[in-house]
Every structure is written in C-alpha cells, then in structure tokens.
Design a protein around this nucleic acid. Structure first.
Lengths: 189, 189
DNA sequence: CGCCGAGTTGAACTGAATCAAGAAACGTGG
DNA sequence: CCACGTTTCTTGATTCAGTTCAACTCGGCG
C-alpha cells in the first residue's frame, strides 16, 4: 500500500485523516497468473493499484478479432476506466499476464473518497489528465504512423513492454498481425 | 457565457462567489472563419468554451501527411489538451471551420480556479473523464473496425459531423483518403 | 462566363492480412 | 533432467483493403 501513497503524495499533499480514510478503503487482492479480472460485458466495479504484476486489457469484436488495448505494470492502475466511470458494461477483458498483487478501490468507495476527502478530486483530475494524454498520443500514432514506425515508437517509449509481453499481444496492440510484426522486426535488425 | 455555466451547473452545484470568480476569468473571443487558433509547436495557453462555431484539430507529420483528430462544436471545449495540461509544444493545429465565438480561460487562470474554488477540481475531473472515454472509444474503433465500419459508426454517433464538415476532413479523421471514403459512401448507398 | 477546390471514378500499386507450414521456445509429467 | 505436446514465432505465397496517380464532374464565386 505504501507504493500507492508514494504515487499519491508525489502529486498532492495529504493529511493524516484523509490518508487513514483512503487506506481503510483499499482492499488487497492476490491474483494468479492467467486470471480474468474483468469480462467483456461486465461492469467494472474496481480500480486497482498494482503493487506488482502485469495485466493486459483486450477486446474481441463480433468477427472474433482480438486486439490488445493496454498493458499495465506495477505502480500504476489496472481497471477498465470507461466502464468504471460510467458503471456500464465493459467492452473489454482484463487478464493477469503474471501473478500479481493489487489494492482495490470499489466504485462506491471511490465516490466516498471524492465526497469526503479534500484531495480526492484533485488526485482524480490529475490521474485522468495523465491517462487522457496517453490515449491522445496513441490516437495520433495509430492515425499517422505505419506499422514499423509504431513499433519503433513503442520500443522507444516503453521498452519494458517488449521485455515482458509476448509478441503476439504486442502485435495486436500495434494493430497488426503477429506475422506482420515478425517481418517488421526482421526488417529493422 | 450562460451556456458555459449551464454545462457547469449540470455537473456540479456552484455558489455565487465561485461563479463570479470563474466568470471574471473568462475572456470572450470572436473568431473569423479560417483562423488558425493554435499552431503545431506552440504551447496551448487557453482552453475555450465554444458559444458557437466549429473547429478542427489536425496534425501533420514529417512526410506531410495530414490527419484530422477532432471536430468541436458549440457547448463544448476547443483547445489542445495535451499541450495545455503539460504546457509543452502542441503536436497539432486548431483551425476555425466557421466564424465562431468562444470564452477563453488561460492556463494561469485555470490554476487559480483549481486552487481557489471548491468546484474546480471536481468539474475538471469529470470533464477529463468524459474526454478520456471518447478517446478510448476512438482507440478501439481505429484498432477493431475497417474503414466502412468506422464511417457507419461515425454517422451513427455523430451525424452532425457529416452535416457540417467537408468529406476530405472526415476521411482523414477516419484514417483514410478522400477517394477511399468516396468509395465507402458509394458502397453503402 | 471561367476558375478553383471538393468530390468522384478508374487503373495500377502496395502494405498488411490471410493461409499454410516449419522452427523455436516453453511447460508439464514422467 | 529429459521427452513430448503445445504454444509462439518465423517464413513463404497469395489475396485484399486501401493508397496513389490521374482524369473527370460538379458547384460556388470572382
């Protein structure tokens, strides 16, 4: 739990009361490798702070095509935000790619944090700003770069992904097939 | 300015003091059709609430390829958020597709609103949640749909775009050429 | 009128998908 | 620790969605 407050206090000062209040709402959860944390169609009830472990967010469309949307690592959050924020069914799955430990905060408790702490909304705003910026950058990459450029950008921006995630998932994250990624990698080496 | 407070009060209650404080920081701006509101490489100093008018956000890469990233309409905001929030150079342009009137809030004044009003952070958080959700949906569309599906989704979700924006811009928003869009449209009619 | 940008249509081309098969890595049970 | 089966990754051949290049139509505006 310390790692969560380390992130929090790097963004905002927090008094002891708020800290105790928030701490009381975080529930630890140990997760086995391969666990599906959230199913497509279910409502996301939690956002989890990752103490350790790696998660993959992915979606499957009507034709059975699967795409990876996000990989999340320690000291960041796991959870389907679109579903969590609106409390409507999720369009994506979340699975644990490794065993993991997270600290979960339920939607109801999140609302209490927003209502009863002085820091909640500011912290929430700044977190949302950060995830927004990442999504906006991804939109631009998908629209303006070809497969090779997107791959090069990924290994520049997030080399830890390459070291920890199977290539087939990286391929679908980049919007290409594993075969195409294999050829891109062959080409640049 | 009423339309801005209408949106604000639809999300959060606001007292007279805060309202007056925020109102004092909004500066009106009349904009001619074709005006470039923001240049690639410049830092976005304002976020603007659109009283009327239509704007296009677009980016141009090294190869001269231009893509439209966002169209914004009345009762919503115009401004390059990634640049505004980080106060770093923008990767995109904003142009007025029509004449327009907006209410501008500078970055410095925005910080004052966050620091000195009780509603600022909550309103900011909820706005960021909304723009995040839109971007996440767009990411999914770009990764999971082909050109025709993206077009059909656009006219379903945002028919006003089709009615107000030249097809060449819609094409690049969808990530395709005007020729490809023309063929998609021919195909579905 | 004539010009100019937007939109359409056609033909050739290309980046990436698909289909298919083999090689390498991985996990599991003996 | 090895053997076997399974999954991941690679490579080749073919196909296809969308690009590029080029020409033409249309509508608005000087």
């Amino acid at each position: 739990m310390e790692s969560f407050f380390k992130l929090l206090t790097s963004i905002i000062e927090i008094n002891e009361t708020d800290r105790t209040f928030i701490a009381s709402m975080l529930k630890p959860k140990e997760i086995e490798k391969g666990t599906i944390l959230l199913n497509q169609g279910d409502v996301e009830k939690y956002v989890g702070f990752i103490e350790n472990g790696i998660f993959r967010h992915y979606s499957i469309n009507q034709n059975g095509k699967e795409v990876s949307l996000l990989f999340t690592f320690e000291n960041w959050f796991v959870g389907e935000l679109s579903s969590f924020l609106t409390q409507t069914p999720s369009y994506c799955f979340i699975e644990a790619l490794t065993e993991a430990k997270i600290w979960q905060l339920s939607y109801d408790n999140m609302q209490k944090v927003y209502a009863h702490t002085t820091v909640g909304n500011k912290f929430g705003r700044i977190m949302m700003e950060q995830v927004y910026i990442r999504k906006a950058e991804r939109e631009r990459n998908l629209l303006m770069m070809n497969a090779e450029e997107r791959y090069l950008d990924l290994i520049r921006q997030a080399p830890h992904i390459l070291q920890n995630i199977p290539l087939k998932y990286i391929a679908s994250y980049l919007g290409i097939t594993p075969q195409a990624l294999s050829r891109v990698r062959k080409n640049i080496n």
